[in-house]
Nucleic acid binder design. Structure first.
Length: 580
RNA sequence: GCGCCGAUAGUGUAGUGGUUAUCACUAGGCGUUGCCAACGCCUCGACUCGGGUUCGAAUCCCGAUCGGCGCACCA
């Protein structure tokens, strides 16, 4: 059994991840989070919130998972997500139908499936592999479609990314942030892609969870005020050049920006924050690297794009986060389709004085003269240069018709005006996290086996901040005199908000092993000394060592352990379990 | 979507055209047990689904579903 199998088997058996709809035969690409997977996911999301909502001050919003057509027309998902396919009747090979006719038609995108098929037939195109006949052209769209309301009037689509929710709320977000750049909004939620062939468990899902941030910045200033806080952090960069060589290179974020490997400070800062977040949820730094998109895989509008990749047993290097400078692509697209101004007014430090040509058409004269065309003529006049306005006759072109005017019909002059700022379209830095993949990676990297007295001990070495169970309360034996105080301790710790598991079944060793397997950082045992001396023992998952502490100090000690303000040995008096 | 391979308790497995489907671990109960998967007894628990062949199918055949691998896809 390889590690992938061990981890997925453990995840299934102990209630982290379950294939969805098992009762009815299942469906590929859908998973349930079980009683331990649910809390693990929530705690990883909460850690993300701590990093990006609390510490970075980004605004968390929640948009519908179903979007109307315009959203995905503008985003490009409706056209870009829908590929015309054709397959060979002989060898069953599948082809992009539009790619087969690229040498015949300039823009195959513009054609219907039927037109593409006709071109394939008329030009006698056969299967490039075996020469067989090609089937009808059909559409495969990765968007899940539905209907909003009765009557099939309004199509809706399950969102393929959470990002659009931030883009289409841009005007309200801008107002919320008092019309000032930079600002950012985030969203944690479900996205949906009707993948052709979901594989590899939770790595490729049809319904999955994303945590995305859209950071709107002024394109003229791609520096970050906190970049000095991360510039000494050293990671493995797998830049375009490094990929050519086949070897990632170790350097600090400061160096990566200085030598131009990362496009700019803002991008570097959020790549660094991503690194810190991934460490916080238990991704191993040795099994992590940052890979730059090659120019041919980068979206055409992106200025630079870095993926956080983790190494997973059997699966290899898997992308878990993408951090892209999407420039002004998204806002421009929504501006073009919605006709809503999504620009931001950015004031200059000092107002600029500027000479400006002022053209004043004499509307009183032009109106009666040209009637309906008067406005078009006036607009054309305003667009002219001073040279054109001089001379005996002014010639303008209105929809191909040359109109000649007497110069007396328009007056003009140079005026001085004060310009206080300019309208810009913000650029967007987008860190996009695949939460499900991060959860799987956190389990894979936490998985650990050792051998104790000839038995294999399986441990998930979760960070306490993400462990689904934080403390197990275990009466040494299932006896009333031990059970009663143990229940009391459980209730007290629960009232403090700790995730407690209380277990009396089987031997103490068996319960330790069970808790190791689900990653419980600390086990507390209640024994006869609890009754006599008012003390309990605390057991550390990773070292299997125990200390004895006062029962009335337990909550305080646990809190300190979780905060990392004390070492385990400082939580009480060390004891050697084997001597007892 | 295509090709190859697979599917038996919670997990890992044995096995067969014909009595009540094997074993281990797990889980639950009782007893025992003073700190790292102890022990004894008891108990729960499965042939992925649909169709066909057959007197009889969990076993053979076909299809579907799910999973693994390869190809394709991954805006």
């Amino acid at each position: 059994m390889d590690k992938y199998e061990k981890v997925t088997e453990l995840a299934r058996r102990r209630g982290f991840l379950w294939p969805a709809f098992e009762l009815y035969g299942g469906a590929a690409g859908f998973y349930d989070y079980g009683p331990l997977g649910g809390p693990l996911k929530r705690r990883i999301e909460d850690t993300w919130r701590k990093f990006f909502v609390i510490e970075e001050g980004f605004a968390e919003i929640e948009a519908p998972t179903i979007g109307v057509e315009g959203v995905f027309q503008a985003s490009g998902h409706l056209s870009g997500f829908s590929d015309p396919l054709t397959s060979c009747g002989e060898c069953k090979e599948i082809y992009r139908a539009d790619h087969l006719i690229k040498h015949i038609v300039e823009v195959p995108d513009a054609l219907s499936n039927e037109e593409i098929f006709n071109i394939i037939k008329d030009n006698e195109i056969y299967c490039p592999e075996c020469g067989g006949n090609l089937s009808n052209v059909y559409e495969f769209n990765l968007m899940f479609k539905t209907m909003i309301g009765p009557g099939n009037k309004m199509p809706g689509y399950l969102r393929p990314e959470t990002a659009q929710g931030m883009f289409i709320n841009f005007p309200r977000l801008l107002r919320y942030f008092r019309d000032t750049l930079p600002f950012a909004a985030v969203q944690i939620g479900k996205s949906f892609r009707n993948e052709i062939s979901p594989r590899q468990g939770v790595i490729r899902l049809r319904e999955f969870t994303q945590a995305e941030a859209e950071i709107f910045i002024n394109p003229a200033n791609k520096t970050h005020p906190k970049s000095s806080e991360v510039k000494e952090i050293r990671v493995k960069f797998y830049s375009q050049a490094a990929q050519e060589r086949g070897e990632p290179e170790d350097m600090t974020f400061g160096e990566a920006v200085d030598c131009g490997i990362i496009a700019h400070q803002v991008l570097a800062y959020y790549v660094a924050r991503t690194y810190q977040f991934l460490l916080a949820v238990g991704i191993s730094p040795n099994l992590m690297r940052f890979r730059q998109h090659k120019s041919d895989e980068m979206a055409h509008y992106a200025a630079d794009c870095w993926d956080a990749e983790v190494f997973l047993d059997r699966l290899g290097w898997i992308e878990i986060v993408g951090i892209a400078d999407r420039t002004d692509f998204d806002l421009k697209a929504h501006m073009a389709l919605s006709k809503i101004n999504l620009k931001v007014f950015v004031p200059f430090n000092k107002p600029v004085k500027r000479q400006k040509l002022m053209v004043k058409p004499d509307m009183k004269a032009l109106g009666p003269m040209f009637k309906g065309k008067a406005k078009a003529i006036a607009d054309a006049l305003k667009a002219l240069n001073p040279e054109d306005l001089r001379g005996d006759r002014i010639k303008i072109n209105i929809d191909g018709e040359i109109v000649e005017l007497d110069p007396s019909l328009v007056s003009y002059g140079i005026v001085e005006e004060e310009v206080r700022g300019e309208e810009i379209i913000p650029h967007v830095i987008e860190p996009s996290f695949g939460i499900d993949r991060i959860i799987y990676a956190a389990m894979d990297h936490a998985y650990y086996e050792d051998t104790v007295e000839g038995e294999t001990r399986v441990v998930l070495r979760f960070k306490p901040a993400v462990a689904p169970i934080e403390v197990a309360i275990l009466p040494l034996m299932d006896r009333e005199d031990l059970v009663a105080p143990a229940e009391k301790i459980s209730d007290e710790l629960r009232s403090l908000g700790l995730r407690i598991d209380y277990d009396t079944s089987g031997s103490i060793g068996r319960r330790y092993r069970r808790n190791d397997e689900v990653g419980t950082p600390y086990c507390v045992t209640v024994d006869y000394e609890t009754l006599e001396a008012g003390t309990i023992t605390i057991r550390d998952r990773d070292s299997m060592k125990q200390v004895r502490a006062r029962t009335d100090e337990l909550a305080k000690k646990l809190k300190a352990l979780f905060e990392g303000s004390i070492q385990f040995q400082e939580a009480g008096v060390p004891i050697n379990a084997n001597e007892q």
